[in-house]
């Protein structure tokens, strides 16, 4: 009895968050799991009959003439999405790390101002901000007009409706998710550690490599997760800046719950995405354990 009470007491602080997520997230996900094994309803929803069609569809498709054939369409879409999400994480890290470090090295009151400066743009709706990028990138946009006025190019460059534009849009959207956690882990960085490192190696970059980056690691990991997962499911930047000419996972799932009226397939896609992400996290956690997981004091 005591042990149960003890367990309860020690877990007290965990209860609000986990209970909220369990009730309002896990239960709904279970509903989705059930949907993924149903046959699609005529007008959205599901029919109460067991079916694994939704999962078969991921790799095999009845062609227009009802023959089951291997169909790489969804694999292609998945690889494209993963690739763009990885590019976004790398981009966010390359841009976000120096910024987080620079801010962490500022005097305290200035640091908070910088942080607030990062969040100000987000008071503006994402769709509106993405529209502004169209103004910058399109054939008659700021960049092309500027370059042509300077005489550097004669024909407008194709910037909009490319995968590069999508990556740019995603980096723009998610880079604060990288900066804030890295900053949080660097903020009380002990300068004596760097001093010691400088004494030892006498090179700023070596100190960065062996002291700062390991210190920032928890933040980098948190940031990478915060960027990668939403980027994988994003659809605003792909649609607006990519021109919607190629589907991404986010728009694909979206499609199933709207005009395609195939909730079970949308649910199955969601389950597969979740499983993939969980697997990545699991392998990360295991390798982190093996390697001792960063710096210990």
């Amino acid at each position: 009895m005591t042990s149960l009470r003890e367990t309860l007491r020690s877990h007290l602080a965990l209860i609000p968050a986990t209970a909220t997520i369990t009730i309002f997230m896990v239960l709904p996900i279970l509903i989705i799991l059930v949907y993924s094994f149903l046959a699609p309803g005529d007008y959205g929803g599901g029919k109460p009959e067991f079916s694994t069609n939704a999962y078969q569809r991921l790799l095999f498709q009845r062609d227009l003439f009802d023959q089951m054939v291997f169909d790489p369409a969804y694999l292609k879409i998945a690889f494209r999405s993963v690739w763009i999400a990885v590019v976004s994480v790398v981009g966010c890290l390359l841009l976000g790390f120096p910024v987080a470090y620079y801010i962490a090295c500022q005097p305290e009151e200035r640091r908070n101002i910088f942080l607030l400066l990062i969040t100000i743009p987000f008071w503006t709706n994402l769709l509106v901000r993405t529209y502004c990028w169209i103004l910058v990138l399109r054939d008659t946009g700021l960049v092309n007009v500027g370059l042509m006025r300077m005489g550097l190019i004669d024909e407008p460059l194709t910037l909009l409706y490319t995968e590069g534009a999508v990556a740019l849009g995603l980096i723009y959207t998610y880079v604060p998710f990288m900066v804030l956690p890295i900053y949080a882990s660097l903020e009380r960085m002990d300068r004596r550690l760097i001093e010691a490192a400088r004494d030892l190696y006498s090179n700023r970059w070596v100190a960065l490599r062996y002291v700062v980056i390991p210190l920032a690691m928890p933040g980098i990991i948190a940031g990478a997760i915060l960027v990668f997962i939403p980027a994988l499911g994003a659809f605003i930047a792909p649609d607006l800046l990519g021109g919607g000419k190629n589907l991404m996972l986010g728009s694909l799932v979206q499609l199933q719950f709207s005009s395609a009226r195939n909730w079970p397939f949308g649910s199955a896609l969601a389950m597969v995405i979740m499983a993939m992400v969980l697997m990545c996290l699991f392998f990360y956690a295991r390798s982190a354990k093996k390697n001792g997981g960063g710096i210990k004091h």
Binding site: T18, V26, I32, I229, F257, W263, G266, M274, L281
Partner: peptide
């Protein structure tokens, strides 16, 4: 469990 909400595509969370 705490980062679970991140892993589900938004439209799925919405419908669920």
């Amino acid at each position: 469990v705490l980062i679970l909400p991140l892993m589900v595509p938004e439209i799925v969370t919405a419908v669920a």
